[in-house]
């Protein structure tokens, strides 16, 4: 993890859409009065949803004014959490887990595929701006290692060929099927169950 780069190309203007504005107001109402600052994270996430999965500086200022807190306080939060993107990401945003269990199971093969197919450097857009990739820390799916996340979906039990397939699909703007790629049912053992045999619904 190094410090996030802030995009040099920034939009001039940001405003919540009607729908998001209502959502934002609802989120703020969950917090006690004068503690609206607590809503900064859900609001940043709303911004990210509205603005092609990244947060421009104007949006941070917008939120700061929205919540009546100093700019730097929003900026601190946005730079702290890795799920907030501060520069444009592709329509398909690939996050490859490289923490120990995935690494042992061959995460760097996935990284190599991303490097080859999407872009040499992480956090940069592919040629046609359709995809970008980044290494991330544990995504909590170690049982299905190695895995990656594309937008909101997990793609698990990968190997080099399957990753190539998936990346090829997203580069052609097709939605690949999420889930295990070795036909496992969520995190269950691959063939037969070997433990907890006396419990029916385990």
């Amino acid at each position: 993890m190094s410090i996030k780069k802030i995009s040099k190309e920034q939009p001039e203007f940001f405003k919540f859409s009607e729908e998001n504005l209502n959502k934002a107001k609802k989120i703020i109402s969950k917090y006690p009065t004068e503690k609206q600052a607590s809503a900064v994270m859900p609001l940043l996430y709303l911004v990210q949803g509205q603005n092609e999965n990244w947060i421009p500086l104007v949006a941070m200022k917008y939120i700061a004014k929205f919540l009546n807190i100093p700019y730097i306080r929003v900026y601190e939060v946005a730079t702290f959490y890795s799920m907030f993107n501060l520069s444009p990401v592709g329509k398909y945003f690939v996050q490859v887990c490289t923490t120990t269990p995935c690494m042992i199971r061959g995460a760097y093969k996935i990284v190599d595929v991303c490097k080859e197919k999407i872009c040499e450097n992480q956090k940069e857009l592919s040629k046609d701006n359709i995809a970008s990739w980044t290494e991330v820390e544990c995504l909590g799916a170690c049982v299905n290692a190695p895995m990656m996340q594309i937008n909101d979906d997990y793609f698990e039990d990968l190997d080099k060929e399957k990753t190539e397939e998936i990346i090829e699909m997203i580069l052609n703007d097709k939605q690949p099927k999420p889930g295990s790629y070795r036909n496992r049912k969520s995190a269950e053992p691959e063939n037969k169950r070997t433990t907890l045999l006396n419990i029916k619904n385990a």
């Binding site: 993890m1 500086l57 100093p70 900026y75």
Partner: peptide, 18 residues
């Protein structure tokens, strides 16, 4: 409120807003 800490962990940096 102009100085803050951006980033985290080892990469935490002290700066003024932009």
């Amino acid at each position: 409120d102009e100085i803050g800490a951006i980033g985290r962990g080892e990469d935490m940096q002290i700066t003024t807003y932009l």
